[in-house]
Nucleic acid binder design. Structure first.
Lengths: 185, 185
DNA sequence: GTTCCCATGTAACCCGTTACATGATTTT
DNA sequence: AAAATCATGTAACGGGTTACATGGGAAC
């Protein structure tokens, strides 16, 4: 009774499907370029998942010798893998919504902080959000000029993060306004 | 060289500071009521963290016998605990921003799905977001009528989730619009 | 001559989750 | 008679992270 693999397995499987005959190294780079902003995959995890996919026979691995570069493994999706990918894609979404935010956690206990410290906390958050927003805006722009279905999906995904960051930047202003009228009451 | 405890330890520590002489059970209920929407704590984790806090001597635990209810442990923050809490609060934020979204992950590989399936995916997401938004709107409203500093912070925290949900609902519409003009090109 | 890129891993850790256990009392 | 509340746990698992290892070739 093999339990279902984690979502990250399917993330990698989907990448292999998209980019056949890639090496782990290339897949890692592709993951960083494409979905890292909503589904980060560390190097170690990547290689572990490649192993899992191979033992599940969802992918095949081939050794490729190179002359001036180190030898590498390349991966291709199998029929079983394609079925698994399709089933996962149309299957139920498991944990949409769970997320943790340690800025909010600190903010929640901010009655123990001075006004300046609360301000610093919000300002730090704002800076992070700004950086995030700019990054995603740049990505959206870049993908906007590429006319492939993959780029289109990538762009819309990036838009999700962009809209989220924008909304949260708005929240920072809202929070500041709320906190500044502590004269009322 | 004791490594720093996880963020959840401080979440519990902060709660004990706010609600002295509470039992684990009461703290769990308080956590569910207050910051569960951005920092969920499972029952098991709660009790584990209470243990950790006690061995760190950041809290003291006292056994309280009850006549018609089971005996319980109650917790109080120590001076060491207060110092640790203050240091954490004004210390650097560690992982603001990391979050995973499995709807987006599926969406990213949606070229393998039919238009109807993509639509179903988005619709499912929309429903979750709507439920989330309504829940947070209700919470914001409820806290808006309580005039304590704690309630105020709770309300602003809830607002963060509310704004996020609203923005993402907007994104769903955006995504739909983008996907429907596949006649262009 | 140091640093970056290619390329693939191992070891260890730990936070968080799920499932299960117990047992009295009060409410429906 | 069943279900909810109070109250506190244990056991087992696993996904993800961080740190470390290796080793050649190319670039600055």
């Amino acid at each position: 009774m093999a339990s279902t693999p984690p979502e990250s397995s399917y993330a990698i499987l989907g990448l292999i499907d998209k980019l056949p005959s890639s090496s782990g190294h290339e897949l890692a780079a592709a993951a960083d370029r494409s979905f890292a902003h909503f589904w980060p995959i560390s190097r170690t995890l990547l290689y572990r998942e490649l192993n899992r996919l191979a033992t599940l026979k969802w992918v095949t691995s081939t050794r490729v010798e190179q002359t001036r570069l180190p030898s590498k493994w390349t991966y291709r999706i199998t029929d079983d893998g394609e079925r698994a990918l399709a089933a996962w894609l149309s299957g139920p979404v498991t944990n949409a919504g769970s997320y943790r935010n340690d800025v909010l956690l600190r903010f929640f206990f901010a009655h123990r902080l001075s006004a300046t410290e609360v301000h610093a906390l919000l300002e730090d958050y704002r800076k992070r959000l700004l950086a995030q927003r700019d990054e995603l805006a740049a990505l959206t722009d870049k993908l906007g000029s590429i006319y492939t279905p993959a780029a289109r999906m990538g762009r819309i995904s990036a838009l999700h993060g962009l809209r989220t960051a924008e909304a949260r930047l708005g929240w920072v202003e809202e929070a500041r306004a709320e906190l500044s009228d502590d004269n009322t009451r």
